[in-house]
Nucleic acid binder design. Structure first.
Lengths: 208, 208
DNA sequence: ATACTAATGACACTCAGTGCCGAATGGAAG
DNA sequence: CTTCCATTCGGCACTGAGTGTCATTAGTAT
């Protein structure tokens, strides 16, 4: 689903069989984010969105399983990217450095997409309903981290240590995001990098 | 709120003014957990619960803001306990040890409550709707950790490092819970303690 | 034209959660 | 005992998210 609001216009693909789709994930997401920005998330109903998109209500729920899914773009694609990036890192790079680098890369966006990304994350981290729903996406994200960590440690992805590490990485990322959203001129990637380093200090096995 | 299904019976309190409550948080939670256990969470409607409790539907939502809140008992009380426990620890105890001890204590329950607690956590960590909703409760929990860490580090509770630490603690706890639920004969407190130690090893500033 | 395919969208339905308001209940004051 | 008052109850109607069903529409291929 959804590559981008711009790349996947209705019918831009090569001819297919059957009736042409009435819209795209990207277009719906784009329209919805706009409405959320104008009126707020809770104040925007699914009916508002489908009216703005000119599609039927039932059709909407074929594109997105829930209203809560709208702010998430093609998350699966990003997960795949991170998985590949992790796999490409040299074996002798310490685990925590590998994770740090991969998480930083995961959150790198083209300069012109940053404002949209910021607004998306502002929603995801401030609207209770979205905060709650996001947990389910974070679970997939943690799984990618846990699989890599398990591979490095000779464990299974559902063992304690890989999972604990994955949770920690998620927490570091989200703590960095909170800072980023609180400061207009902050640099997200630097904050994430910083968070990883700081945890090393606090949690170092040599001293607390 | 709920202290316990047994301790707070309707009218057990000292005389009050006005009509007597028809039930208690504890009783509702107890009845609901029972139904969830029998038929599953999604398969149990609020109507089922109020029918079993013999109260009106509207009354239910005065006791609990949502169906998702039912599995959480008196969480606020537990948070207070943890806050006090943290404050009581000696100042020269390293931060990560203080956090480890407090988190372990937070999850200590009387032997006879463990089966109920297990069932509660099984629900909270496996039902998507509850997983999502739990995020909101975890936020309060993290705040307690972050406040303590901030105090120790001379930061504010909403600064990067305290928040990152709080996220890490939450992650460690939940990773331990996942292991606990996967193994019938596992010891929760030992798993939590173990998770904290393992993160020290992986994340140690000396080596990765 | 006809057949086939895939997507749309209308309708009716379930369920969670809310606002409103009168009814029920029990203690306190006369 | 009666009246007053505080407080809770619970019915009703409503909104809004999400689902199952199914006829319809709009494309491609023959």
């Amino acid at each position: 689903m959804t590559v981008d609001a711009t790349t996947q216009t209705p019918g831009a693909d090569r001819p297919r069989i059957g009736r042409a789709p009435a819209t795209t994930h990207g277009e719906l997401s784009h329209i919805a984010l706009q409405l959320f920005h104008e009126r707020g998330f809770e104040e925007t109903t699914v009916d508002d969105i489908v009216r703005a998109a000119g599609i039927g209500r039932r059709t909407f729920f074929r594109y997105y399983r829930s209203k809560n899914d709208l702010p998430w773009g093609d998350f699966d694609h990003l997960l795949d990217q991170m998985r590949r990036h992790l796999a490409s890192l040299p074996d002798d790079l310490p685990l925590r450095d590998a994770l740090r680098l991969a998480v930083v890369e995961f959150n790198r966006f083209p300069t012109d997409e940053i404002p949209v990304h910021r607004e998306r994350m502002r929603l995801l981290l401030s609207v209770p309903s979205l905060m709650a729903h996001s947990t389910l996406r974070y679970t997939e994200w943690r799984q990618v981290i846990a699989e890599f960590a398990a591979d490095r440690l000779g464990d299974h992805a559902d063992d304690l240590e890989p999972r604990a590490i994955a949770w920690a990485c998620l927490g570091l990322s989200l703590a960095a995001y909170e800072q980023w959203l609180a400061n207009d001129d902050a640099d997200l990637l630097h904050l994430i990098d910083d968070a990883f380093h700081r945890l090393s200090t606090t949690w170092g096995s040599t001293r607390g």
